[in-house]
């Protein structure tokens, strides 16, 4: 059975003056342990789709199931990372990473120890009593990653989590995230408009076309690239080849521009 299944997802946003269709007939499957990317220009509804998968919004039409259960009931199985870290500035790092456990009422000493040791594994020992303001952007995003992983979700959703970082930090974090997810056997969906990031990190790429958002094409990343860390994948000859293919495909989606 597929881990995550989407069948005929439609979504329309209503305002007083108009009804905008954000997603049109999206059907796709994600296997357990897979890392997939939603790639596409702005306006293709990829963040909307992610919010639907996370159970934050109800689709106008269509079915969606995580391990055969509706996503609304599976909130404890999913984790979500936003564009910026959104660490709570009035909470210490420790309070921030325990937030999910506190909300679900599963905070106990064993879990505390595990989460703190995870923070250490991310290279962030001895920061637990600091406030987010005292950390750099890359460190904060790593804390946000720990906060997301703390509730032990099976499916992780990343909404352009590296877009607000400088290039060097972004490359380092890509490696860290990819290695961590692989080590814990997590399933992940990455939303991005960065072709290189999608190619370097994913096992499969879903390319979306805009207005209304539709699934345009699926790319399967070759085995050679998948086995490499994102940083090393970027240096592989196949990387450039794929980058060019996807680039051309994206260009063909926007004939009206340029």
């Amino acid at each position: 059975m597929d881990f995550l299944t989407l069948r005929g997802i439609h979504h329309t946003y209503f305002t007083k003056t108009s009804a905008v269709t954000a997603l049109n007939n999206i059907s796709l499957d994600v296997q357990e342990g897979e890392f997939v990317s939603f790639l596409g220009p702005s306006g293709c509804g990829k963040t909307t789709l992610l919010s639907i998968i996370a159970g934050l919004i109800e689709p106008s039409e269509g079915q969606i199931a995580l391990e055969g259960r509706p996503v609304k009931e599976a909130a404890d199985k999913t984790g979500y990372m936003l564009q910026q870290d959104y660490l709570f500035p009035w909470k210490t790092i420790e309070e921030n990473i325990f937030l999910g456990l506190k909300i679900s009422g599963t905070l106990n000493d064993t879990r505390k120890k595990e989460v703190l040791s995870l923070l250490g594994q991310m290279g962030l020992g001895n920061v637990d009593s600091l406030y987010p303001k005292q950390l750099s952007g890359g460190m904060r995003q790593r804390v946000a990653l720990v906060r997301t992983l703390a509730t032990e979700p099976k499916l992780l959703m990343l909404d352009e989590p590296f877009s607000a970082l400088d290039y060097q930090t972004k490359l380092k974090l890509e490696d860290l995230v990819a290695n961590t997810f692989k080590a814990f056997g997590k399933t992940a969906i990455l939303v991005t408009h960065d072709i290189g990031e999608a190619v370097a990190m994913s096992d499969r790429i879903f390319l979306f076309s805009p207005r209304p958002g539709r699934l345009h094409k699926t790319f399967v990343i070759p085995e050679e690239l998948r086995d490499l860390s994102p940083f090393n994948a970027r240096n592989h000859p196949l990387y450039n080849e794929l980058f060019q293919t996807i680039w051309k495909e994206l260009e063909s989606l926007e004939p009206e521009e340029n």
Binding site: A75, Y86, I103
Partner: peptide, 14 residues
């Protein structure tokens, strides 16, 4: 209040 803080909490089922 920035709705993204609420989004973080909602993803935890708050």
């Amino acid at each position: 209040v920035d709705p993204n803080y609420l989004k973080v909490l909602q993803t935890f089922g708050a």
